[in-house]
Design a protein around this nucleic acid. Structure first.
Lengths: 229, 229
DNA sequence: CTATTGATTTCGAAC
DNA sequence: GTTCGAAGTCAATAG
């Protein structure tokens, strides 16, 4: 990883055009070809960047022209380009960092779906799973179940239940209902938390809302394990 | 801005839980309180981070315990926390960067709307603009036009035409159609690119899809004539 | 390779 | 303060 603290200006042309007036910034160049230009404020995002795969050319200082770093990337038919004009270098160091271990994550939507697929009754009494990722022509329904009356139930799972989640399951139901044998299919939105407005919208469309707790879902298994432990 | 190159491990608890095994990484601390942990690969995103406003505590090395940087933030009822355990420091430098100039942008959705307002025929043959940002009680229609048959046409403009864009114009049309004089108003989705699923949904709802080219709109490039060849 | 979707999305503006 | 929509969204996964 190369870290350059320098006074610089930058231009980006690609999906749009941007200009970054001259100021003191950090230019970070990763060994995978990532390039990022960070200001000392502005939070998470770099002011300019390019993701791999990139081509990085360093143009040395010459006559009146300052040194320049040119980063390019093929982007379909066109080319993305960042030009960094460096007028003053305060620091320029390179560190060999080797491989970094990957991030381990726990508690994302996929985990929620796994747990609910194993225990679909949390989405509604007596529900039994027929299929995960039930395909429609506008995307897959997370869980397709049947209830105690043998009626179809489409379950959409989200970490956060928003209006958009209600729209999504509504679209699925619209498609599912075209199939005569599934015309009475009902919908359930299951999420760790459901926004009040989403709940209101869902209720107006006869879509049931269920809040589920990751810890409880996992705790449900514990009695079984401890009994034998 | 403080740049620490160090061997470290990190834990995040908040919206989810993550663990980052020990490895060499860059810890970037901005003067606005942003903290980012970057590996030498992995592109644009840090492996761990926290956006302002944060509280940053530095716990010195003691006995068997390595030095630690603890970053916390109030997140509603709960607290987000990143703990960085630093076992070896290769470099630790601080640079005073002052204020960095803001980014200037050109080519965003607003520009597309301006150009199409000037040349609405790109959204449909013979269209003439009646009003930009036509107000409905659920938000403004980007362009309200009339066609050669004097029929109303509501145009929604996006850089990328997604299912959500189709939902949006559908909601608008639903409202517009309540006005008897506009009951025959039709909808057009104009975007630089339109996703296949969005196109399918739009066609099922008799909403027309039009792909437009920014460069062509600006007259920098001739329209693709191969369609007629 | 394209297309879709989740994300600790981030970010900003409108209300 | 909350909500809503855009983003050069990014990045991973499925087809």
């Amino acid at each position: 990883m190369r870290l350059i603290v320098a006074r610089c200006e930058a231009r980006y042309t690609g999906r749009l055009d941007t200009y970054l007036p001259e100021a003191l910034r950090l230019v970070m160049i990763k060994s995978d070809g990532s390039v990022m230009i960070h200001a000392d404020t502005g939070g998470y995002k770099p002011q300019n960047w390019m993701t791999p795969p990139t081509t990085i050319d360093e143009v040395p200082e010459a006559d009146d022209e300052p040194a320049m770093i040119v980063v390019t990337k093929r982007a379909g038919a066109t080319e993305d380009r960042v030009e960094i004009r460096i007028t003053e270098v305060l620091s320029d160091v390179t560190h060999d960092m080797g491989e970094a271990a990957a991030l381990e994550r726990d508690g994302v939507e996929a985990h929620l779906q796994e747990l609910l697929a194993d225990q679909p009754t949390w989405c509604g009494e007596g529900l039994r799973l027929v299929r995960r990722e039930w395909a429609t022509d506008i995307g897959p329904v997370d869980l397709m179940c049947k209830d105690t009356d043998d009626r179809w139930v489409a379950v959409e799972i989200k970490r956060v239940g928003t209006i958009e989640a209600v729209e999504q399951i509504t679209r699925y139901l619209e498609r599912i209902h075209r199939e005569p044998s599934m015309a009475d299919c009902r919908g359930v939105l299951a999420a760790q938390s459901i926004k009040p407005q989403a709940r209101t919208l869902a209720e107006g469309r006869d879509i049931e809302c269920v809040e589920v707790d990751l810890a409880v879902l996992r705790g449900e298994r514990e009695p079984d394990l401890t009994l034998f432990g």
